[in-house]
């Protein structure tokens, strides 16, 4: 257990990676959005912004870097793959949870201040702001974990099978997607699929993404277990 905590501490030796850079991204995305809103003449309509996503994409890059560079170093530190995995994913989950709570709180402020005074929507997006606090936090959290896991697993695949592995993976994903689309068209399922999508709530989406995350987490762990530094 102690070594798991030490893996998290190792990841935090450079404070910027997990804390500083995400903070800068969040603050600057927020300020730039406000600046843009300030420049656009008010038309009475609601402003929307996807700037709150920025930090999530950074976490995908972080997932890749954690594996390609920190993993070989962790091996030199005599850390087992399992300990490295739990420590790294655990640290990431903690940071993601903190940001999710922050997003929720910022959403409350946003509503209270009439969209930061611009009638804007940055955090309290229509679709989820009406949900229960726990659901909102869960939604952000799951989304971030999913992106980190995608980065992490792709990096693991690259680590083990290089470019060939990536190519095969992408082709496989494309084939499956095209197959599903084809099947849906052929069977005339589009109306059903459409209804299914409309019926989704933030909670159910979180559930589906969580399921996706669990698959990614299991897959990346199994891939990592046989990875060499």
């Amino acid at each position: 257990m102690n070594r798991v905590v030490n893996v998290a501490r190792m990841q935090l030796i450079n404070k910027w990676t997990f804390l500083g850079i995400p903070a800068i991204i969040m603050v600057s995305a927020f300020l730039i959005t406000l600046a843009i809103w300030a420049m656009i003449p008010a038309s009475g309509e609601t402003f929307y912004s996807g700037a709150s996503q920025a930090v999530m994409w950074y976490f995908m890059a972080l997932g890749i870097q954690s594996l390609t560079l920190t993993f070989p170093f962790s091996q030199a530190m005599s850390v087992s793959r399992r300990t490295f995995y739990i420590g790294t994913v655990g640290l990431f989950a903690t940071v993601a949870l903190a940001i999710s709570v922050l997003y929720y709180l910022l959403g409350l402020v946003e509503v209270a201040t009439n969209g930061w005074g611009f009638n804007g929507q940055l955090y309290a997006l229509d679709w989820i702001a009406t949900e229960h606090a726990v659901v909102q936090i869960l939604f952000y959290f799951i989304a971030m974990v999913a992106l980190f896991m995608i980065g992490f697993w792709f990096a693991t695949i690259y680590k083990r099978w290089q470019a060939t592995g990536m190519l095969v993976t992408w082709i496989a994903i494309a084939v499956v997607l095209i197959g599903l689309l084809g099947l849906t068209s052929w069977q005339g399922w589009w109306p059903v699929v459409g209804q299914w999508f409309v019926a989704q709530t933030p909670l159910s989406v979180s559930g589906w993404v969580a399921l996706f995350c669990a698959v990614l987490a299991g897959g990346s762990y199994l891939t990592l277990r046989r990875a060499t530094p």
Partner: peptide
């Protein structure tokens, strides 16, 4: 109880 630093050891980018 072991230490093994590879000849081609890789370190995190910002280390």
């Amino acid at each position: 109880r072991i230490c093994f630093i590879r000849e081609s050891q890789r370190y995190p980018e910002d280390f």
